[in-house]
Structure formats: structure tokens, C-alpha cells
Design a protein around this nucleic acid. Structure first.
Length: 493
RNA sequence: GGCGGCAUAGCCAAGUGGUAAGGCAGAGGUCUGCAAAACCUCUAUCCCCCAGUUCGAAUCUGGGUGCCGCCUCCA
């Protein structure tokens, strides 16, 4: 079972994946701060770890996947101020939009999705213990982590305390109004005191709120444990976020926080990071209006997760065209394999699909053909995924199999190949449900207008047989056609 | 300034010692009343530059150039 290699940011190397505790895999990914709409960069992050946890389950591991929601943060507070509503309302609203986006993208829900606000008491406890152990100190209502007290600080971000201090000196140090509260420039907040009328919870140090890094340390500890297998997030979280989590957790527990640290690279626009602050982002909802979830997924998975993706409408359109070939190939599968389960709700369909998902152990027995071709396909696919989740190669294999499907003349064999295609596409979270014939409202209106135009041509020619047929058929379809004063209008019956 | 990463066809993008995956675009063909779509076939003598190691390098080493990220909120 231990054939998976993962790139570990901690060591900077690819390593054989061996869980800490037998077959159990405890995995935590840093989720969103819910203060605004999610963009393609967030989609990539959730997509990548969605596929990784799917693949670990496929590989037979007993995975517990946790993705948190940060619902208390300066950005939320600022957003609430500018909107004139409470921070709780902001957090709830954007939690809903996040869930909606994730659902649309066919991201499997995590096993647990803790929110920071649910762990305030435990965060206070965590901070108390750090103070008791001499790793943190109070300063005028704030509590800071004493970086100098944790000698391994910087091991994830490959920085030394000296470098950081020099760097801090180079920076606009004078603008840090907290400088005189901290023992050391690089110390970071575990607890921030609240100003008058600001969001806050009571604590031994007065009203305040937790620092950003603390929530992940606390939730990881209490939802999963003191040492977990995989801790993941975007590349920008390596330092300081994950570095600080390590400092807090390992200073307190005296053991590694996570065995493997995984980080995905960014989505770029014109070679620059897509981000809120750059203003060069495209929201998921905006994208979903123009491209299917499968298209966005193919687009993201065609690049290895540790490499930047260059985003452009052209690339996304290319992915859409490419997906079309996969959809046509998948259409040769049996309806049961291909459909989402007729009559089921979207949620039921997803749960059903997940339940039917193949595993490494069942893949061969569930392969209806199991000839040299599918054996080769399965091996190349899993070899690629075993190699630090190389979805680019795995995806290319879907195209390889599609080509074989198109040239196969034996119907049974072709149906079998298509079934295997669908099985493995689902492993990557692709539904391959055929959206090519879904027509939007604007197009529907144009079509009705076209039909009425043709009907009016018939009426002009006094071909009432045809025009009446059209009216009847439209009525059967639920549309009433009305001729009044030389005008023809229509509405829903 | 410190640390880390990247440079592969028109574009996107795998490959990290054995002689360049895949996708898009492009060309030719099949099909077709026309058109479109679809399918089939083809498309980098070579991987930013220079030097080195090696029987052999896009892949390793050294140097150079360009770009990006982190060090402040960030997936």
C-alpha cells in the first residue's frame, strides 16, 4: 500500500507516504477566510486537496479529512464595518457562498469542517498552556508567542531568526505600532485585545479575539490530534501561517504537528499571482456562468499542483474543447455508469457516486474488459498519481483511453472502455455528465421566437395546418401562443 | 537585502540521466445537399545562454540572463 510518494515542504523532498498510525490518514487543509467571494485560486486549492483525499481513499486509506472555515478575522471585521452589518452576518453569508461554490464544483465535503468561533474556549486554553510553558507572554491585553523560545522556528519556511530580524529591520519597522508591545519584532499574536465596541470574547487577558494562526493549531489538535499525517494549504501559507502553527503546536506538545506538509502553487494572470489584493481575480461564480465544473476541474488538473497555472480565458476555452472529447467518449458507457442516477437529487447522486467509487483493490474486478489496454491504462494512471499526485499525466491518460474508445468497433468492448474511463474520471472528481445539450434561458427564448417566426411564415402563406400544429405542440410543451392584433406573444401556461 | 521556485513548440503543459506525454490552435484526409461538428493522420533534430561531469543530459554540477513567490493580509 505504501507506493505513494509525496513532496514534503518540510524536507523539500519527495518521500514515500507512510501514515503515522497504520492505515489511518489524518489530513487537514487550511480553508477560506469567509469575508468575500471565492476566486479561481481558492478553487484550485480545494480542488487539489479534494483529489488528493479521493486518491488516498482509493488507495485504501481510512482518511479523515478536515477543512476549516476562518470566521473571525480582521478582514471580516473590516468588511462588516464597511457594509454596516455584524461580522457574524458577513461570515455566515460568505460561508454560504463558499459552500455553494464548492457544491457546484463537485468538491466532496470534508469529514469535519470546524469554524474558528466554535473553538474560542479551547484557543484560550491553548494560549494559557503556552504561557505556562514559557513560550508566550501577555503584553497590555495581547498575548504573543515568544519566537526565541522555540529553537526550530523557521524550519518549514527555511528561514533563520537572524534572517528574519535583518529582514524586519529592512522593512518599514517604524510603522509597526505593535513593536513596543513585543519582546521581539518577529513575535506573533496568539490573542489580540479588542478595542471598545469591537468583536471580542472574554479571556484572562480581557476582551479580545484569537490570532489567525492559533485556530488551526487548536482545531487540528482537537479534531484530529497532536500529530497528524498531512497538513496542506496554499504556497503562501508556508510562512508565516504554517510556520507559526508549527511553533505553537510543537512548543506545546513537544512532538511534530504533521508528518507531511503539502503546498499547492498559485493561479497566475500574466505571470502574476491571482489575488484579492492584486485585483486580478475571477470569482468561481463568474466562471461557473461560462464553464462547467468539469471544465474548471480539467483546467486545474492539467497542471501539477505544485506548479503555477497560467490563467486565461483561452486556456479555459481550450479545456472546454478538450473536455468535449471526454464527454463524447464517456457517452459510450452504459447509462447506469454514466448517469447521475435518474430521479435522485444532486446531493443523493453525489453520495451514490461516491459509494460506487472504485478502489485500488476493486479496480481490476470492476474493470469490465480487463485486457492489456485497460491494464496499461490503470497502471499508468495510478503510477502517475502515486508520484506526488501527478494529475497532468493522469488526465492525459483519459484522453489516451478516449482515443481508443473512438476507434474501437466492438460495441461491448467500447462500452467497457468507456466504463473504465468514467470510473477513473470520477476518481479525479470529474462527473463527465454530458452538459453539451443543456441550453440556457436566453437561448430558449430565441428558439421560441424562431419557431413563432416560422409559424408566422406559414400563416402568411395561409398554411394553417402547419401553424396550428406548431401552436398545439408549443401548448403541449407548456407554452401558450396568443395572436392578438397582428402580434404574436407567448407565455408559460 | 534574506530565503524559495521557475525558464520545454504559436499558446497551455508533463517529463528530472537513455534519446521530447497530453490539451488547444494549425495542416491534410474521411464523412457531408451546403455549413458546422465529429473522427483519422501529421506537426519541437530539440528543451533560456555558456562551460563542465558522463558512453549518453531538457534532466546532474558551476556561472550567467530573465521571470515569479514568500519575508505584511493572502489558497
Amino acid at each position: 500500500m505504501t507506493t505513494i510518494q509525496v513532496h514534503n515542504t518540510l524536507t523539500g523532498k519527495k518521500e514515500l507516504f507512510v501514515p503515522v498510525n497504520g492505515n489511518r490518514v489524518l489530513m487537514y487543509a487550511c480553508g477560506p477566510t469567509v469575508y468575500d467571494m471565492s476566486h479561481l485560486g481558492h478553487a484550485r486549492m480545494t480542488l487539489v486537496y479534494d483529489v488528493i483525499q479521493r486518491y488516498l481513499r482509493f488507495s485504501g486509506y481510512d482518511v479523515t479529512y478536515v477543512r476549516n472555515i476562518t470566521d473571525v478575522d480582521d478582514k471580516i471585521i473590516n468588511r462588516a464595518k464597511s457594509l454596516g452589518i455584524s461580522p457574524e452576518q458577513v461570515a455566515r453569508e460568505y460561508t454560504y457562498t463558499f459552500w455553494h461554490d464548492m457544491h457546484c464544483l463537485n468538491i466532496q465535503p470534508p469529514d469535519f469542517e470546524p469554524k474558528a468561533t466554535e473553538f474560542i474556549e479551547l484557543m484560550i486554553q491553548f494560549t494559557k498552556e503556552l504561557i505556562e510553558k514559557g513560550h508566550a507572554y501577555e503584553s497590555r491585553g495581547d498575548v504573543y508567542f515568544d519566537v526565541a523560545s522555540f529553537k526550530e522556528y523557521g524550519k518549514l519556511g527555511k528561514k533563520t531568526l537572524e534572517d528574519l530580524l535583518v529582514g524586519a529591520r529592512e522593512q518599514v519597522k517604524s510603522q509597526d505600532d505593535l513593536a513596543d508591545r513585543k519582546r521581539n519584532q518577529v513575535d506573533f499574536a496568539l490573542w489580540k485585545s479588542a478595542r471598545e465596541g469591537e468583536l471580542g470574547w472574554s479571556s484572562p487577558w480581557g476582551a479580545g479575539r484569537p490570532g489567525w494562526h492559533l485556530e488551526c493549531s487548536t482545531m487540528t489538535k482537537h479534531v484530529l490530534g497532536e500529530t497528524i499525517d498531512i497538513h496542506a494549504g496554499g504556497e503562501d501559507l508556508v510562512f508565516p501561517h504554517h510556520e507559526n502553527e508549527i511553533a505553537q503546536s510543537e512548543a506545546l506538545h513537544g512532538k511534530p504537528m504533521a508528518k507531511y506538509w503539502l503546498h499547492n502553487s498559485f493561479v497566475q494572470v500574466n505571470s502574476e499571482k491571482m489575488s484579492k489584493s492584486e485585483g486580478n481575480f475571477t470569482t468561481i461564480q463568474n466562471l461557473l456562468g461560462r464553464f462547467s465544473a468539469d471544465t474548471i476541474r480539467i483546467f486545474a488538473l492539467q497542471t501539477h499542483y505544485r506548479h503555477p497555472i497560467e490563467f486565461s480565458m483561452e486556456s479555459l476555452t481550450a479545456a472546454k474543447t478538450a473536455l468535449g472529447r471526454l464527454l463524447r467518449a464517456a457517452a459510450y458507457a452504459t447509462p447506469a455508469e454514466q448517469s447521475n442516477g435518474a430521479g435522485a437529487t444532486a446531493g443523493e447522486a453525489v453520495l451514490k457516486q461516491n459509494a460506487q467509487q472504485i478502489t485500488r483493490a476493486t479496480a481490476e474486478s470492476l474493470d469490465p474488459v480487463n485486457d492489456d489496454l485497460t491494464k496499461q491504462f490503470r497502471k499508468t494512471f495510478t503510477d502517475a498519481m502515486d508520484n506526488d499526485f501527478n494529475t497532468a499525466i493522469a488526465t492525459s491518460q483519459l484522453f489516451f483511453l478516449s482515443d481508443k474508445i473512438f476507434v474501437e468497433t466492438d460495441e461491448n468492448r467500447r462500452r467497457g472502455y468507456a466504463t473504465v474511463l468514467v470510473q477513473y474520471a470520477r476518481l479525479l472528481g470529474l462527473t463527465l455528465s454530458d452538459t453539451r445539450k443543456q441550453v440556457d434561458d436566453a437561448t430558449t427564448k430565441q428558439i421560441v421566437d424562431l419557431v413563432l417566426e416560422l409559424r408566422n411564415i406559414a400563416r402568411t402563406k395561409k398554411d394553417y395546418e402547419t401553424s396550428d400544429l406548431i401552436r398545439k405542440r408549443l401548448a403541449d410543451a407548456g407554452l401558450n401562443v396568443m395572436d392578438t392584433g397582428g402580434n404574436t406573444t407567448w407565455e408559460q401556461a
